[in-house]
Computed example of a mutant assay.
Amino acid sequence: MISTVTRWTEEQMEIFFQQYVTTALWSSLDDDGEPLDAVFSVDDFERESEQSLWEDCHDFVVSNWPDLSRLDPGQCGHDFWLSRNGHGTGFWDRGNGAIGDRLHAAAKVYGSVHLWADDNGWVHAE
């Protein structure tokens, strides 16, 4: 799942992605209103969903590299999830001025993602 197309190292891109899916789990709720991270981990994503999330992350990083290159990869992964899903915080809320505003607007273009878990213990993204 690692690509060298971005200017971050493979390790930095992995940090971005891992923080993105970690944030996705703790900010998403099950049918009883409990955070998904109470039961699931980043290893529980169904393959197609994981690939789709990875592709969004990779595309976002490549498309916004000039601004992202100045910031922490883990924080950016966290903020990408929050901004794209309209959580009321994210890139714009970090004190990064115009960079944060541009990244927040760019993340919104990707639209919201909804996570849910099936009866077999796999997390899906749609």
Rank of each mutant, 00 (worst) to 15 (best):
C76R: 09
E48M: 08
V21W: 04
S3K: 06
Y20G: 11
D32R: 03
G95Y: 05
W26C: 04
Q75E: 15
I2W: 01
G97L: 07
F17Q: 11
A106R: 03
S3I: 00
L36F: 11
Q51I: 03
W26T: 04
N64F: 13
D56Y: 00
G100F: 01
G121M: 10
V21N: 01
Q75C: 10
E126S: 14
S69P: 01
Q19M: 05
L53H: 02
Y20L: 14
W65Q: 07
T6R: 09
R94M: 02
T4K: 03
A38T: 08
V21H: 03
S69I: 07
S49C: 00
P73S: 10
D118C: 11
H58V: 05
I99R: 09
V21E: 01
L103K: 04
V61N: 04
L29P: 03
F60I: 04
T89V: 10
G77M: 12
W54K: 00
P66N: 11
Y20A: 10
G77D: 08
M13I: 06
G90L: 05
D119Y: 14
A125M: 06
D31T: 03
S83A: 12
E14T: 14
A125P: 01
D72G: 08
E11Y: 04
N85S: 11
W8V: 00
I15D: 07
S112T: 13
E34A: 04
T22P: 00
V21T: 14
H114C: 13
G97I: 07
D44C: 03
A105R: 13
W116E: 15
H114F: 12
T89F: 09
G100S: 05
H124G: 01
L29V: 06
V113Q: 12
G88H: 07
V123F: 10
D79A: 14
I15T: 13
G33Y: 04
V109G: 02
D79W: 06
D93K: 02
G111L: 03
L71M: 06
V113D: 02
S3C: 06
F91S: 08
I15C: 06
